[in-house]
């Protein structure tokens, strides 16, 4: 089973890349691929429960929750980028079941995957 990491660094509002990464990950179910997602930089605002891109006519994020849940796709977020954008742990939408990693861990974390694609 190959481990694939999708790294998203652009905001969920005003760009398609958070949804595209989610869609790409979902497209891997049923293959011998095990997708995971990492939000860093501006993409971390996606996990804030107050974030609603659909209010701007963009795709909503909540439609992804049932797939993440059903297939157990892990979502990781970068601690320092959350802090930089004033997002506290209690602001994080529980449905993401997001795991927080630090900048210190980032390099070895990324290297632990077979394929890494940065959106």
């Amino acid at each position: 089973m190959k481990k694939v990491l999708f790294v998203v660094y652009q905001s969920p509002a005003g760009s398609i890349w958070v949804n595209e990464a989610l869609r790409s990950a979902f497209g891997m179910y049923g293959e011998d691929l095990e997708p995971a997602i990492l939000f860093m930089e501006d993409a971390v605002i996606a996990v804030n429960k107050n974030t609603h891109p659909e209010s701007l006519g963009c795709l909503s994020l909540s439609m992804s929750f049932k797939y993440l849940e059903r297939y157990g796709t892990p979502v990781y977020i970068l601690k320092e980028d959350l802090e930089k954008r004033k997002i506290k742990e209690e602001d994080i939408e529980p449905a993401w079941k997001a795991k927080i990693i630090t900048k210190e861990e980032l390099s070895s974390f990324v290297h632990s995957f077979d394929k890494v694609i940065i959106f």
Partner: peptide
Amino acid sequence: MALIIIKKSPTENISKRMIEMAIE
């Protein structure tokens, strides 16, 4: 080891983040 392909200019922070991901 890994080949890190960086396609964004130095003005975009993701480039610096990817350079920092590199290990020996």
